[in-house]
Design a protein around this nucleic acid. Structure first.
Lengths: 152, 152
DNA sequence: AGTAAGAATGTGCGTGCGCACGCATTTTCC
DNA sequence: GGAAAATGCGTGCGCACGCACATTCTTACT
């Protein structure tokens, strides 16, 4: 609004994140007993080839950092939604493998989460706008690998 | 990418936030000794009428929560960038008022921050896209007050 | 006026999170 | 082959963050 046009998009992104992420996290946790972090990790594991990912890969592909991923996997193992498995080819690395129970929980939570995204986010804009937002932000991510990004 | 079109925009927003916010925070802190949270609070105070804001207003307008704002203001007072001032009309409320030193620090930090936004974010997309992103995300925020949002 | 309900703030506390570090293993280089 | 650098991982630690609660003051109601 009072913002110069360049920063308006960035400022809005920060505010949307601050407003919606806690709300969706609470909602997911109340309706599914599943924190957003767990959902994200389970989603990535489920989509990965062989339904398994090393900790480093998980840190790269998921929103959480690598060290955080390690601890989230601990919790998921304790909850029976994931198992740890060692890689015979590289004994340093540890795979996280989603269990059937994990996939069940993920499938149960998905409609809740997707519904929240639709209700709070996507439905507020036109389909064209949603497509443009997705394309623009993906370009931001693409130009990212160049400038050193790693958080951990 | 593999995402259904609806969730692609939201997923990209999460990833952009996760990738860029820590980076900008570090950069601002290294080059200006100013955490992103401080910058945000100083910016809002500086833009406010009378250059002052109560804690509740600050929590509403800034990205930080109300309780967090109270503590950030403590730090800013200790750093001499802000002063606390009581409201004669309502002795419960406490105003935070930006000092000249605070404005100086803010003016010094602004080009760094704006440059980072341009470099990492805005320059990756076309001006049209930036405008569309801003408009779409502001609509998300506008439709927000309705559904109870308050975090604190 | 007097009392009960409500609002604004600050603080103790538990949790989430990433960094710095150390350990184990792999890879590179001589 | 063997040593040195590099990689992957888990953990101790400190900081950021919000919730629940107590406090102080204001407002509404009788």
């Amino acid at each position: 609004m009072g913002d110069t046009n360049d920063t308006a998009a960035w400022a809005a992104l920060l505010r949307v994140h601050a407003a919606l992420v806690p709300r969706m996290d609470k909602e997911l946790q109340v309706k599914c007993g599943l924190p957003l972090t767990w959902y994200d990790v389970l989603l990535e594991l489920n989509a990965a080839p062989g339904r398994r990912l090393s900790m480093g890969e998980l840190g790269d592909v998921a929103v959480v950092s690598r060290t955080r991923a390690s601890r989230v996997v601990d919790q998921l193992v304790a909850a029976g939604l994931v198992t740890r498995e060692s890689n015979p080819d590289d004994k340093r690395s540890a795979y996280a493998l989603i269990t059937d129970a994990g996939r069940k929980r993920l499938r149960a939570a998905a409609p809740i989460y997707l519904g929240a995204i639709e209700q709070y986010f996507t439905s507020r804009m036109s389909p064209d706008e949603a497509a443009t937002v997705a394309r623009a932000l993906e370009k931001v991510l693409a130009g990212d690998g160049a400038a050193g990004v790693h958080v951990d």
